[in-house]
Design a binder for these strands. Structure first.
Length: 211
DNA sequence: TTTGGGGATATTA
DNA sequence: TAATATCCCCAAA
């Protein structure tokens, strides 16, 4: 008598990313720079049961989500879960120091401004989801290591400004604006038909745009 | 030339 | 410190 299902292994069969998998994945993603040639293999080691190709595909899927967010097409992905992953990692101080302190901008060169790379922006968005809006310090320390909290805050300011502008601009039709903002709360969820009905109002609690 | 994106700094709470 | 306001550079319209 064998087992009915082969669910014994500690890892999922394949195309199912649990919440834990996702957390491990994001944590590892933040951990490694993009310069690693075998980045995906390294990350895959942090996500048991996933091959590097699966991890890579998952990452591309995530990027796709982020791009949609950036296009102002979706409200915002799931923000419901808080993570308590206490990790003990610290990174080297790669903070860039400027020669001029800012007061001396008379004849010396002005602050030039280092443009954000796509990777930094992705890390920023990931950090935003992991630590929440406002915790620029944590985001800077754990996600976007190459930026100071002030820089992260500045970037966030522009980012949300742009998001709001897009949303206001797209306030044309409403019915087509309804989209599955939440990948895990949307149509595909065979394991849990009814997830969370915590809100008495039919409107989802968007996490707050005070601007 | 004007406009506005993008980053840094200044000010405020 | 975070939130907000303003400044500055520069590229596109």
């Amino acid at each position: 008598m064998s087992c009915y299902y082969d669910n014994s292994s500690s890892s999922s069969p394949s195309s199912k990313w649990s919440r834990l998998d996702d957390q491990l994945f994001e944590r590892a993603l933040v951990l490694f720079p993009e310069e690693s040639p075998d980045k995906w293999e390294k990350i895959a080691r942090y996500v048991p049961g996933k091959s590097w190709s699966e991890v890579k595909l998952h990452y591309e899927d995530l990027v796709h989500d982020l791009v949609e967010i950036d296009s102002g097409r979706v409200e915002l992905p799931g923000y419901g879960d808080e993570l308590g992953s206490g990790w003990g990692g610290e990174s080297g101080a790669s903070q860039v120091c400027f020669g001029s302190k800012g007061k001396d901008r008379e004849t010396t060169e002005r602050r030039k401004g280092i443009p954000w790379t796509e990777e930094e922006h992705r890390l920023f968005l990931i950090g935003l989801q992991r630590y929440g809006k406002g915790d620029w310090r944590s985001i800077s320390r754990n996600a976007v290591v190459s930026r100071t909290p002030t820089q992260v805050a500045s970037h966030a300011q522009k980012y949300f400004l742009r998001l709001n502008s897009m949303k206001k601009d797209k306030k044309r039709c409403s019915i087509h604006d309804i989209t599955m903002a939440d990948p895990e709360n949307s149509a595909m969820n065979p394991t849990k038909p009814f997830q969370n009905q915590r809100s008495p109002s039919p409107y989802p609690p968007h996490f707050g745009f005070p601007m």
